[in-house]
Design a protein around this nucleic acid. Structure first.
Lengths: 207, 207
DNA sequence: TTGACATATGACACTGTGTCACATATAATC
DNA sequence: GATTATATGTGACACAGTGTCATATGTCAA
């Protein structure tokens, strides 16, 4: 998390820095990004940077978290619109996520995020859902899911369902950027996989 | 890939270097590992290192690939033993993977690999399966799967099934290291999730 | 006005990378 | 065996980037 010093900065100064950071993190993946470039672009001295953030990662995950929160809002809206239908909502959310590729501002930021997706990034992006699926209490998002048509026996299993679809979703998002899939290809793959897990991978009557 | 120069080295020299590399990659995650430490430990000059490998990643993925090949052999053996039953084989393979944590030699190497799992590492480890699931032709591993009890309509869908269980498997393996799960917890989670996708996430009769 | 505290600044020490000119070994040709 | 060509070995070096720290500057209350 950024230090208080950064949060107390004038909005102007904060924005300049954030813009410079987004620019650098859109130029190259996190591990190649350099603080030197960011501060040069934002015209702040090196010492100041460390007054605001612990290090490069601190700044990066602050930005990623902000974008993730927007996504979470979107998911909530979709879940409401789809009246709690998890699978329909997932596909809609997936459509939305890959549409971000075409939005100039975040384009390459997301591209590099997914090409270098790891546990920490995934967790930051899915934060609200993953966290909530653990402490099953006051979970805003989870409560929106209509569990009546899910093949589960308890809350515990709901959390596993979230894990499953989360893993599949991220895997598919990564594939989009790795193989430069078109929107149609990406959605088709994702829908196929979601349908497969919906109806079950094992033929009925077998065990 | 290592350069020919490295492969032509005496077995002795090669092993010294490989041991030093494993040691360093077990000390810290890839991005923190330093060539300086490896060459100091192996007593080879800096210039020589670059005669053998492109860079740190080149060496790292060479090692990871070797370990992955062992894993693939194991998977083939398990599939044969389980007479092509995909789900039973997956659980068995999962057991095997997490048992590696207790094997002194690879212990921390795997730990850091999974804590920093990303697309490239996942692909290296699942290489044989993921690649084969694309060009469905002469695929050694895929042919071992008994598809008769899978709820799929064509080869295309088999490849999606592989993707799904692959994503779930890696997600679970990462969780093991992130949350320091016991073997029992890890296996229980994994079995629950595999069972859920086997029978389907959607309650029967609903649509 | 002064002192106490927060914030700003950039020079610096440090760590690590990849390269290159030169040294040495190995093999090939006469 | 001498000579040339080709492959491999070597470490000093230039370069890029990080995080820190002593010092400067601002802010605000007594």
């Amino acid at each position: 998390m950024p230090k208080q010093t950064f949060l107390s900065l004038s909005e102007d100064k904060r924005n300049t820095l954030i813009q410079a950071a987004k620019k650098e993190f859109s130029r190259v993946p996190l591990h190649e990004a350099s603080i030197a470039n960011i501060i040069k672009d934002a015209s702040i001295p090196r010492g100041s940077f460390y007054q605001y953030f612990e290090d490069k990662e601190d700044l990066y995950y602050y930005l990623l978290n902000q974008l993730a929160q927007e996504n979470n809002k979107k998911l909530i809206a979709i879940l409401q619109e789809k009246e709690g239908n998890l699978f329909e909502s997932l596909v809609e959310q997936f459509r939305h996520m890959i549409s971000l590729r075409h939005h100039e501002e975040h384009k390459d930021f997301f591209r590099y995020a997914f090409l270098n997706m790891n546990h920490r990034k995934e967790n930051t992006m899915a934060n609200n859902i993953y966290k909530e699926s653990l402490k099953n209490e006051r979970s805003q998002t989870l409560k929106l899911i209509d569990t009546s048509y899910l093949n589960i026996e308890d809350k515990q299993e709901l959390s596993h369902v979230i894990r499953i679809v989360g893993a599949i979703t991220f895997h598919n998002l990564v594939q989009v950027f790795v193989h430069d899939l078109t929107d149609e290809e990406a959605i088709s793959n994702y829908e196929t996989q979601i349908n497969l897990v919906k109806k079950g991978l094992q033929k009925e009557g077998v065990d």
